[in-house]
Amino acid sequence: MTRTWRRLTDRLNGKQDPEVLYEELPDHLAVPVRQWALQAMSNYVLVGLVCLRLRLPSRVLNSHSPEETLANYVDKSNPMIFMEIIDVLLAGLADTNPYSQGSRGATARELRQELDFILTEGGSAYMVNPDQNGLCRRVNETLRQSLEAAVQAADKQSQDGGTHLREAFAAAYGISPNPSAAYSHSVKAVEAVANPIFLPKSPEPTLGAVRSTLDQGRNKYEMVVQDRTGAPAGINAVVELLNLLWHGQRDRHAGGPTSQ
């Protein structure tokens, strides 16, 4: 977590261990998060979207106050249901003008900031994702900044590189993680940047072909970073990183002992 506040007893005891993060919707977060959901739905028409996307029973929309019914919704068979509701509400808010005021005065941007504050102060394992359109698992600020720097660098080189990096992050840290999709988008992000540079005329450029090109032509390239002699370093490290990324994607083909 990015905050450094600690309760008095922890400070007095010199406790330095990272704070335990809370999964699902713990009791101490239930009231403020549900109140936030009611505020979001009272400002923007989002109840129908949530019910449709999460396939919620018709009793929600048929109730006297669908907003209040949804804000207090409980499903004992799915302890993550309310975090999923919040996730869909954020997706709905992302489709609105972030600076336009809702029916009760709150802007989408203000609502997202308020939710992120509640989740952070309450020690939730989740936070508003970097794209502001859903929840993801909480990551430290260094990783968050690294992602943004990588996305900006990729966007300068290719049209799709940054998009694939964002998709990879969402798949890795979303409330329903998908490691295979995260890895696949990571490979595509590298391909989006590397293929036009190293395989500009290839009809079917791939990460494997980039890897082979650099592996076979190590003497043709050098890095801006200098080695310990002060000369431009070779590209061995880059080739090994590409090898690791290429060999690590074990689920490209099914049926093998290491395909998952």
Rank of each mutant, 00 (worst) to 15 (best):
A125M: 10
S202C: 09
I175K: 10
E191Q: 11
A170C: 11
V239Q: 05
L119T: 04
A154V: 03
Q249D: 14
P179S: 04
G161C: 09
G174V: 07
S202F: 06
L135W: 03
A149Y: 13
P205D: 07
R228T: 10
A189W: 02
A150K: 10
H185Y: 01
Q226P: 04
N195I: 06
Y183E: 10
M223H: 02
A150M: 11
V210K: 03
I175P: 08
V187N: 08
S212Q: 14
V139N: 10
L207G: 03
L147A: 09
T163A: 14
P257M: 02
M223A: 03
L241K: 13
G161K: 09
P232A: 14
C136G: 00
Q145V: 00
T206S: 15
Q216E: 12
K201Q: 12
A233W: 01
Q159D: 14
N133T: 01
S158W: 02
A233N: 05
G248D: 04
P177N: 10
E167C: 10
K188R: 15
K188A: 12
K156R: 08
A254S: 15
E167H: 14
G162W: 01
E204T: 11
L199D: 06
L244C: 13
G161I: 07
Q157N: 05
E222L: 02
P177L: 06
R144I: 00
P232F: 11
V139L: 12
H185W: 01
G134S: 09
T229N: 15
T142R: 14
P130S: 05
K156Y: 04
A170L: 13
T142Q: 14
A192Q: 08
V238A: 15
E141F: 09
N133I: 02
G234V: 03
T206C: 11
S124L: 02
A182F: 06
G161A: 10
K156T: 04
K201I: 00
S186M: 03
A254C: 09
E191P: 02
P196S: 06
E240H: 15
V139I: 14
M223F: 01
P232K: 14
Q145A: 13
P177R: 11
S158K: 05
G122Y: 03
S186D: 02
N129Q: 08
A237P: 00
K201Y: 03
G234Q: 02
V225W: 06
R228C: 08
I197L: 10
L214Y: 05
A231D: 12
R250T: 13
C136I: 01
N178A: 11
S212F: 04
A231E: 15
Y126G: 00
K201S: 12
E121A: 12
L165R: 08
G234D: 01
P196I: 06
H164K: 13
G208M: 04
D155A: 04
T120L: 11
D215S: 15
V225S: 13
V193G: 06
P130C: 06
M127G: 00
L207I: 08
P232W: 08
A194R: 05
S180Q: 15
H247G: 03
S124W: 05
L143Q: 12
G174D: 08
F169P: 05
L207C: 02
N219L: 14
S146Y: 01
L245A: 09
S212D: 13
A254V: 12
A209S: 13
R211E: 08
A125N: 09
D155S: 08
A237K: 15
T163W: 07
G134R: 06
V151Q: 07
Q226H: 12
S146N: 12
A153F: 11
D251M: 12
G208R: 07
S202G: 00
H253N: 10
G134F: 06
